[in-house]
Computed example of a mutant assay.
Amino acid sequence: MLAIVAAALFFIAFLIDAADISTNHVFTQTNIMLIGLTLLALHLAGVGSGWAARGRRR
């Protein structure tokens, strides 16, 4: 799920760059891309995967 959100943020950052849209200082292309990279790193680290490694159930 985090990877899908990261991909959407990368696409938004690409649209901001490609269309040359001016935004305020918070929603710049670089900030959106960094948020996407953070979400992608969390996805690769296993955060939010839904799998619990607590042990086997019998």
Score class of each variant (00 low, 15 high):
residue 5 V to A: 14
residue 35 I to D: 02
residue 39 L to G: 02
residue 41 A to G: 14
residue 12 I to E: 13
residue 41 A to Q: 11
residue 33 M to C: 04
residue 36 G to T: 01
residue 32 I to R: 00
residue 38 T to F: 03
residue 12 I to G: 09
residue 48 G to I: 06
residue 46 G to F: 02
residue 12 I to Q: 15
residue 28 T to P: 00
residue 56 R to W: 04
residue 1 M to C: 08
residue 1 M to L: 08
residue 18 A to W: 10
residue 37 L to S: 07
residue 34 L to A: 07
residue 38 T to Y: 01
residue 44 L to W: 05
residue 58 R to P: 14
residue 30 T to F: 11
residue 34 L to V: 14
residue 25 H to N: 15
residue 44 L to H: 08
residue 35 I to G: 01
residue 9 L to S: 02
residue 2 L to W: 01
residue 42 L to H: 04
residue 39 L to K: 00
residue 30 T to L: 10
residue 10 F to I: 11
residue 53 A to Q: 09
residue 28 T to H: 04
residue 51 W to C: 14
residue 2 L to T: 00
residue 39 L to F: 01
residue 55 G to I: 01
residue 56 R to E: 13
residue 16 I to G: 01
residue 31 N to S: 07
residue 29 Q to H: 06
residue 22 S to Y: 09
residue 53 A to V: 11
residue 47 V to G: 11
residue 20 D to F: 12
residue 38 T to V: 13
residue 19 A to R: 07
residue 17 D to A: 11
residue 46 G to H: 11
residue 48 G to N: 05
residue 54 R to L: 14
residue 15 L to N: 07
residue 52 A to Y: 11
residue 51 W to P: 10
residue 26 V to G: 04
residue 27 F to R: 07
residue 24 N to L: 07
residue 51 W to I: 15
residue 1 M to K: 06
residue 57 R to C: 12
residue 31 N to T: 07
residue 10 F to N: 10
residue 32 I to G: 01
residue 8 A to D: 09
residue 31 N to P: 08
residue 35 I to H: 03
residue 53 A to I: 07
residue 48 G to V: 06
residue 57 R to T: 15
residue 41 A to M: 12
residue 19 A to K: 11
residue 26 V to W: 06
residue 54 R to K: 13
residue 24 N to E: 05
residue 2 L to F: 01
residue 30 T to A: 13
residue 17 D to G: 15
residue 34 L to W: 09
residue 21 I to T: 06
residue 44 L to I: 09
residue 6 A to I: 00
residue 10 F to H: 10
residue 49 S to N: 15
residue 8 A to L: 12
residue 27 F to G: 06
residue 29 Q to R: 12
residue 10 F to L: 13
residue 11 F to K: 08
residue 36 G to E: 00
residue 31 N to M: 02
residue 51 W to E: 14
residue 45 A to G: 13
residue 42 L to W: 00
residue 21 I to G: 02
residue 51 W to R: 15
residue 14 F to C: 10
residue 52 A to C: 11
residue 8 A to I: 05
residue 41 A to E: 08
residue 31 N to I: 00
residue 47 V to P: 05
residue 32 I to M: 01
residue 14 F to I: 09
residue 41 A to K: 04
residue 26 V to A: 00
residue 20 D to C: 11
residue 17 D to I: 06
residue 37 L to M: 15
residue 42 L to I: 01
residue 7 A to L: 05
residue 34 L to G: 06
residue 49 S to Y: 05
residue 6 A to Y: 01
residue 45 A to V: 13
residue 6 A to M: 02
residue 36 G to K: 02
residue 28 T to D: 05
residue 46 G to Y: 07
residue 49 S to A: 11
residue 13 A to N: 04
residue 6 A to K: 00
residue 52 A to T: 14
residue 18 A to M: 12
residue 10 F to V: 13
residue 47 V to I: 15
residue 4 I to E: 13
residue 42 L to Y: 02
residue 9 L to Q: 02
residue 46 G to A: 02
residue 5 V to W: 05
residue 54 R to N: 13
residue 7 A to E: 06
residue 47 V to C: 12
residue 33 M to F: 09
residue 17 D to C: 07
residue 26 V to S: 02
residue 44 L to Y: 05
residue 33 M to Q: 07
residue 58 R to H: 13
residue 15 L to P: 03
residue 4 I to L: 12
residue 56 R to F: 09
residue 46 G to K: 10
residue 21 I to P: 12
residue 26 V to L: 04
residue 45 A to Y: 09
residue 56 R to P: 09
residue 26 V to F: 10
residue 46 G to Q: 10
residue 55 G to C: 04
